[in-house]
Amino acid sequence: MAFVDDLGAALDKTPGGGIILTSLDAVMDWSRGKSLWMMPMGTACCAMELIAASFSRFDFDRHGSIPRPDPRHCDVMVVAGTITRKMAPAVKRLYEQMPDPKWVIAMGNCAVSGGIFYYDTYSVIRGVDEFLPVDVYISGCPPRPEALQDAILRLREQVATDSIVPGRDRQLNTILPTPGSPRKGDSAAADGDDS
């Protein structure tokens, strides 16, 4: 993304470049949001729901979220399942292999906080956010595929606030939609972001 980053930084400094930048951001965010390819980091029970999500009944391909096992093809890592101390270095390494911009969905209680494996255990990492920046948390043990679907749509809203200027996007990234907030599709000003 080096070229895009340079372009964004250069445009930001150029007088009048902001207008081009806004249009560029809109195009980039639209294209990124519509094809969030998933890195299925499925380790335990939640992986079953992750698999079920991409097969016949729930069919996630229609959202443009195709599971790709190669981290170099992926935009969003879905950490589905318990992460143990033995597994954590591999997860971190796979995350580092993903190209920027990248997002992380923590699916299930184990990836959020350790869940049922919080107490009394010697080998479980209590939440994947101990070593990865998580964008969307999904609760549930395991969450239903619909919950993952909701997370993808929420993440898409968040992606739509990103800018290609380096530094600016990370700041915006932290503003997560509050639970129960209206969807983009709900409001009158639907901007073509519906699925």
């Binding site: 101390r85 033995k86 919080y118 107490y119 009394d120 255990t121 010697y122 080998s123």
Partner: peptide, 23 residues
């Protein structure tokens, strides 16, 4: 099951690990 550099044997009753949070 554990990593090669693990210290101690977890299922012994006197196993101590500061990473365990007692319920």
């Amino acid at each position: 099951l554990l990593t090669d550099d693990w210290v101690g044997y977890p299922l012994r009753k006197d196993y101590e690990d500061e990473r365990i949070i007692r319920r």
